[in-house]
Structures are given as structure tokens and as C-alpha cells.
């Protein structure tokens, strides 16, 4: 799913930003720019983690071989 992919990309970017800030001898402007981006990444990752409820569907196959995902309560 696109959300997951972008999540993992975001997390990677965040890790890199923290490392850059920790290791690099950056000027303030550059550091602030990285920091700002990283804070936004933390927020978007948190949001992704706090999403909705469990959704359960049943995978069925039609006679023509197509997949149908049928929602079930449990």
C-alpha cells in the first residue's frame, strides 16, 4: 500500500535526519531546515500509527478467477 511505503520511506528519512544532525557540524540555517523536516516526519509517522480500527475482510475467488474481498464483522 502506498501509505505503508511512504511511511517506511519517511521513517528512513527521519532516521537519517537525526543522524545527520547528531554527526554533522551544520550551520544553524541548515540544521533548522533539517530539524523542521524531521519534526514533520515524526508527526506524519505518529499519525500513521494512530489510524483506524481493525478491518476484517474475507478473500473469495469468483469462478472467473477474480478476487473479491468481502467485509465480515468477525
Amino acid at each position: 500500500m502506498a501509505g505503508k511505503k511512504s511511511y517506511e520511506t519517511t521513517l528512513k528519512r527521519l532516521e537519517k535526519a537525526v543522524e545527520t544532525l547528531e554527526n554533522g557540524d551544520l550551520d544553524l540555517e541548515k540544521a533548522l531546515k533539517i530539524y523542521k523536516g524531521a519534526v514533520a516526519d515524526v508527526d506524519s509517522c505518529r499519525k500513521a500509527l494512530e489510524t483506524a480500527e481493525l478491518e476484517i475482510r474475507r478473500l473469495e475467488k469468483t469462478d472467473s478467477g477474480d478476487f473479491v474481498k468481502e467485509a465480515i464483522d468477525d
Binding site: 500509527l49 481493525l54 478491518e55 476484517i56 475482510r57 474475507r58 478473500l59 474481498k69 465480515i72
Partner: peptide, 12 residues
């Protein structure tokens, strides 16, 4: 469900 972490479950 207890973890309630927004997962989708595809049951076969």
C-alpha cells in the same frame, strides 16, 4: 483487535 492498530485483515 486489542492492539487496535488499524490493520486490515484478509482472511482466507
Amino acid at each position: 483487535r486489542r492492539r487496535s492498530c488499524g490493520l486490515q485483515v484478509l482472511l482466507r
